[in-house]
Design a protein around this nucleic acid. Structure first.
Length: 568
RNA sequence: GACUCAGUAGCUCAGCUGGUAGAGCACAUCCCUUUUAAGGAUGGGGUCCUGAGUUCGAACCUCAGCUGAGUCACCA
């Protein structure tokens, strides 16, 4: 980057960097800097154990400065929080040379720099636990000014809030908005809690392919890519279900994976093109067992995060205390629309949709019609955790038919706050039935459903060797995190949500280049003469000359003879 | 994909019926001995998102575009 593009503050910081080097201070030292305390533990423990904090070594980023004559205060932030430091000139610089304080500390350091300090902990007159420092070490010179967020009495000033900047520059967001970090700490805690529970049960964490020749296990549009050496198309996985079931065939009795899935679909507040799903498959279990297991997951996660099963979400309290109500899809539709869908054919279902004011199109089969009814009229009503069970067979091509009614499947979704949180089945292990279901999907695809599933011959081959009765469940980690951290947008629970690329900064425009060319021939030159020579319209001339002056390419000066333009 | 709103200094935001920009913080210079978003004084800093149009004149009006947010549509 050339120098004239730097803002004033960036220029000043680069000059400070240069000056530090001139003083023999390495602004980017290589050596280990071993700390022996964190901001959090000092603030929590100092008052009770004063003796333990007489020789501490601490490192952090400078977040505020209060410089006075011979004494200054600053706040340092480490991964646990912030703590104040007190700096006294004559202690930092015991001899005659006061450079370390007067120049280095007061002038060359900026908010955003990272320093290490040695000293002792004390309490100021105003009662703030602080580090009285004896020496400091520059660990990193920051070249960009940080947005400064201030807070007093719970009121925040100058908050860094622009969502675009927060998501694009998450590193800045994390530095200045401490609550952002909390969300991600909770996200990891959710995953750890689940992993611990599954391991306790003796289940086995595995990894399965992300690049797949046939994207299976869900109804969604995949991302397509290409493998050069094999010269074949490959797809990014939309689910890991079919691979995990192959492992059950292979003899594992409980497998799970925290998986990144990819779907080439719309983006909004609740959808990111890549997202995390936990899928688990357990042999010799059914979907009824899985409901209890899912309840235990939710309960344990809520307790691990909040110490209670009651979790705030918007203006509601969601209680994850088990057990949750079980409502069949037929009951749910009956309750919220008044129509009984049991035993109805496609035409009758379409008529009901019409009466309910639900739009349909000819590509929709029975399953899709029922799904629409549920999605439009029922889903939103289930705020507290509720299992919706026994989905129509057309909607669930990988699910075992219901033991009592072949029109239905042994499937449940866990609804929370009107949204799907988890999805589970008694897995279909009848290879002949599975092949027929895939063929039905193919028919849907021919009818125009671009999300219908492909036939995975290898998966069918695996089932033909025999898979024990198995129950599987998938849970959206992003959505669970949103629920557990009261976040209204998926972007708030992803470190780096997908964004459109940033636009490149434009260089000189055509008009500016024209003016620059004329200036190279003659400079300084009378402004009116130059303008006439360009032949530009008033507006274009104005833009061009302002552009050049702002980029410090040209300069306009006024003297007694008039206005003159000079090439810089 | 449709509609609504927004884009002005490093950050948060003003900016009147159209007359080429302001504040606070941040930054710089100077003064100041344990201060609490904020000591005092002075000063510098701008592609008003981009382009075109209307106009004597556009941050402001019109059109197109870019980016983001929200609502809806699509969608496990």
């Amino acid at each position: 980057m050339s120098n004239f593009e730097l803002s004033e503050q960036e220029g000043i910081r680069r000059n400070s960097l240069k000056r530090l080097r001139e003083l023999g201070i390495n602004p980017y030292p290589a050596a280990e800097f071993e700390v022996n305390a964190t901001a959090k533990e000092i603030k929590e423990n100092f008052v009770a154990e004063k003796k333990n904090y007489q020789e501490i070594v601490f490192a952090g980023r400078i977040m505020s400065f209060r410089i006075m004559g011979k004494a200054s205060f600053a706040e340092l932030q480490d991964h646990t929080g912030r703590i104040q430091i007190y700096v006294n000139r004559d202690e930092i610089c015991p001899g005659e040379d006061k450079t370390m304080y007067n120049e280095v500390f007061k002038k060359l350091l900026d908010i955003g720099d990272i320093i290490g300090v040695k000293g002792f902990v004390f309490t100021t007159q105003t009662g703030e636990t602080s580090i009285h420092i004896k020496e400091f070490t520059v660990l990193n010179k920051s070249l960009r000014p940080l947005p400064i967020v201030k807070e007093k009495d719970g009121k925040t000033y100058d908050a860094f809030t622009d969502p675009e900047q927060r998501y694009r520059q998450r590193y800045v967001d994390l530095i200045v908005n401490p609550h952002v970090k909390d969300v991600f700490i909770k996200r990891t805690k959710i995953i750890n809690t689940m992993r611990e529970m599954f391991n306790e049960y003796g289940y086995f964490e595995v990894e399965t392919p992300i690049l797949q020749p046939i994207p299976g296990g869900a109804a969604a549009r995949p991302f397509k890519t290409h493998h050069n050496a094999l010269n074949i198309p490959l797809y990014m996985r939309i689910a890991n279900e079919l691979y995990l079931k192959r492992l059950i065939v292979g003899g594992f009795e409980g497998v799970y994976e925290f998986a990144k899935d990819f779907r080439n679909e719309g983006m909004d507040r609740t959808h990111n093109p890549e997202f995390t799903v936990m899928e688990i498959y357990v042999a010799y279990k059914d979907y009824k067992w899985m409901m209890k297991f899912t309840e235990e997951i939710c309960e344990r996660v809520a307790l691990a995060l909040h110490g209670t099963t009651k979790v705030q979400l918007d203006d509601k309290i969601i209680d994850y205390k088990a057990p949750y109500p079980r409502v069949t899809m037929t009951e749910a539709i009956k309750e919220h629309t008044g129509y009984d869908i049991s035993g109805k054919d496609e035409k009758e279902l379409r008529d009901i949709c019409d009466k309910l004011g639900i739009e349909t199109d000819p590509s929709m089969g029975k399953g899709k019609l029922i799904d629409e009814m549920f999605g439009e009229k029922c889903e939103g009503n289930y705020i507290q955790p509720t299992f919706i069970t026994d989905y129509p067979v057309e909607m669930s091509p990988l699910t075992k038919k219901h033991r009592e009614n072949p029109e239905l499947t042994e499937r449940f979704e866990l609804m929370v706050n009107g949204k799907e949180l988890a999805n589970a089945y008694s897995e279909l292990n009848d290879p002949i039935d599975q092949r027929e279901r895939f063929e039905d999907q193919l028919k849907l695809s021919e009818k125009g459903d671009d999300e219908a599933m492909f036939i995975d011959q290898d998966f069918l081959r695996a089932l033909e060797y025999g898979m024990p009765p198995t129950s599987g469940m998938g849970i959206g980690i992003d959505r669970l995190t949103m629920f557990m951290t009261n976040s209204s947008s998926i972007q708030d629970v992803l470190f780096f949500p997908q964004m459109k690329p940033e636009k490149k900064a434009v260089e000189l425009t055509e008009e500016e280049k024209l003016v620059q060319g004329l200036l190279k021939a003659k400079s300084p030159v009378d402004l009116v003469e130059l303008k006439t020579a360009t032949g530009l319209s008033n507006k274009k001339w104005d833009k061009a000359i302002k552009g050049l002056t702002s980029k410090k390419v040209a300069k306009v000066e006024k003297n007694d003879d008039g206005l003159f333009v000079t090439l810089v």
